[in-house]
Design a binder for these strands. Structure first.
Lengths: 339, 339
DNA sequence: TTGAAAGCGCTAACAA
DNA sequence: TTGTTAGCGCTTTCAA
């Protein structure tokens, strides 16, 4: 008569309560009418038996899993330590509040991305997907669209009726950064960006260009560098900049990691920051305030992007949100020591 | 005749192949005999129809989900940015290689932890659990043990037949740190640790004590501080240390974050590091090498702990691993500028 | 080498 | 307010 370790099912509860499974199911879901007395009896029994619904069975039947996938880049996430943690925190906080679970979905950047997306949605395990920082040219996103699968892209921008995104005001931030450098007396400003395909980097570049024009500064193609959001790459590229006949007096880095690489390089070259060369970053990652000189940067609200993104996804899943969501969250200048 | 958007099931493949579901199922799993010709035909059909198994149905039937839960502390993970990312990377890499998925399971530290664990295992969604840095006194782990649910604890230590863990050689690391300080001429060494309940902090403290004894140094209770693995707490506690009549000449911090807080405090007090006060940390998080002075610390192999942990869990799930796994991975001294 | 039957534990839809 | 029936899409078990 082991009543302890056996798996308790809906049926067990129903039998003990002398009702049908449906009644118990109704109590559980809170939907549908159940007599108060019956409900109480069943609730007690549930506690007594320590009954926990089998989520697999429930999902299979109801076609809802209450699980959302977070698509991270297999390789990149190690370099985006701060970013990944913050954004997932935001996503998680909203998910938790709505009883949703989070599944980590690492996807490679090159191989068979198409297959991976398809597998994710066809497996029926997920109610929706949140994509972190995908590249602009990821053509397989179309697969998600065609399958009418609910998804939201974060730190990505594309004004399409089929794509929901939450991003920061990158262009405006870039303008702020450039104007700030200008206000500090800089007229020769270089731009160091990420990969060409990233919408973030593109937007920041276009903000930089627009600001130059507005300020009446000359745009020089040689001072625009496309690297990658990594310290090492920035360190290397910064060297090239220093070797030029005509050096800029300030560098606007489209990413804090790049800014850190740049600062490292500058210090090793014996240059004083900001006197000999000013540096401004973008993001305001944790390290930004800890390095010396502390990094002046444009802060983007990563945690909030995560929150808003998850909230949006939930609205889409529930059908509350009908038309496409295109949100750009505000950024702010954080003045520290590097400019 | 829409052959495109309809959901393709096992049955569809079977019918088109003019075989029973079972045969297709056998092809999919690779188990059980299937005639080569049949197998080929079915494989082609699977590709042609772009069939993807419904994982919910499969799991419900087979009682295996191929999903492992990673239990993180709801609050802490934001402060353990570097740690969380690294360890999950390690876990993820192994999981991926074995076709396992990862589910994030945020658990609060106080509220109804017991209920949360129970819910996780009873929901039948997970094949196993990896717990990150739980407190020593978490009594509800017993629930997992009693349910005979496969789980592994990381950065936790308890020699029990019922508990599998992978941790770093914390005690040895602490001895290394203390001896290193000694070798640099320090005879008055303070210890700043985390919460009393954490096995990590305990082990590091006991290493410190052992080293003192071995080196013939006097142990002073007032120089042992129990704070929390946070910069702010360390910053505050460091102040107390500085106010003492008799100051130490070196501080061994049981965690890099604490060391950073300490360094900040020391600098603000106008003390030179390491001349006026030496500081050594533990972990070697990313920032350690970036702050000034760069932090001398004991590196623990976090990524490897993740990998080993996941590998261990898989062995337990498969029944390959019978007796308890108690692994301690080696640490190493990283000499930089703060000692 | 293949198939038929039964069932995993739940919910949707309808009926009473 | 409650119950019945019929699946969800797969695997297990046993039989052919």
């Amino acid at each position: 008569m082991s009543n302890s370790k056996k798996i308790v099912t809906l049926d067990d509860v129903a039998q003990r309560a002398k009702v049908s499974k449906m009644t118990v199911s109704r109590v559980l879901s809170g939907k549908g009418p159940v007599a108060i007395k019956t409900r109480e009896r069943i609730n007690e029994l549930i506690k007594e038996l320590d009954y926990q619904p089998n989520l697999l069975a429930r999902s299979l039947s109801s076609k809802q899993t209450m699980i959302v996938g977070v698509v991270v880049n297999k390789r990149d996430h190690m370099f985006m330590v701060d970013y990944t943690t913050k954004i997932i925190s935001g996503i998680m906080d909203v998910a938790l509040r709505h009883q949703y679970q989070l599944m980590l979905c690492p996807v490679s950047s090159e191989d068979d991305v198409r297959g991976e997306y398809l597998r994710l949605i066809r497996s029926k395990m997920l109610d929706g997907l949140i994509l972190l920082k995908r590249k602009q040219d990821d053509p397989y996103i179309q697969e998600l669209v065609e399958a009418k699968f609910p998804f939201v892209m974060l730190n990505y921008k594309k004004y399409s009726q089929d794509i929901n995104f939450v991003d920061a005001k990158n262009k405006q931030g870039a303008i702020m950064a450039t104007e700030y450098l200008y206000s500090k007396g800089h007229r020769e400003i270089a731009f160091m960006g990420g990969r060409v395909g990233e919408t973030n980097s593109n937007d920041r570049l276009s903000g930089y260009k627009e600001a130059l024009k507005k300020l009446g500064l000359k745009y020089r193609a040689v001072w625009v560098i496309h690297g990658e959001y990594h310290q090492e790459v920035a360190y290397r590229e910064c060297g090239k900049l220093l070797d030029m006949a005509q050096r800029p007096t300030a560098i606007f880095c489209a990413d804090d990691n790049m800014a850190i690489g740049v600062i490292k390089r500058l210090r090793e070259s014996g240059l004083k920051i900001p006197q000999d060369m000013a540096v401004i970053g973008f993001d305001d990652i944790q390290i930004a305030s800890m390095i010396r000189p502390a990094l002046t940067t444009i802060r983007q609200p990563i945690y909030d992007i995560g929150k808003t993104g998850m909230q949006t996804l939930l609205n889409i899943i529930n059908g509350t949100q009908q038309k496409a969501v295109h949100r750009l969250l505000p950024v702010e200048l954080v003045e520290r020591e590097s400019v």
